[in-house]
Amino acid sequence: QEPLTSGMLTAAPPQEQKQMLGERLFPLIQRMHPDMAGKITGMLLEIDNSELLHMLESHESLRAKVDEALAVLQAHQAKEAA
């Protein structure tokens, strides 16, 4: 699969841009958290597109955001369960 570029993104409608980013992010996140990849990807897609592109190139920054989203998600779930 060829790398996603900002040029490819801006040529697409906004909603499709998020889908394109999600298609690339999901498999990476799925490797870290198979059970919650869809939810975590959905949360991360609210981040600015330029930052999401950077996260596709830098797995370290992706992992940091995934960890952040997961911590928030788990805290939220614990609160709901209580």
Binding site: G22, G38, K39, G42, L45, I47, E51, V72
Partner: peptide, 21 residues
């Protein structure tokens, strides 16, 4: 736009195309 974790928790889950019909 800044990532605000507390708000993002309500974002819908992403469904990749290979999981759709």
């Amino acid at each position: 736009e800044v990532f605000v974790p507390g708000q993002n928790v309500h974002a819908p889950a992403f469904v990749p195309s290979f999981m759709k019909d």
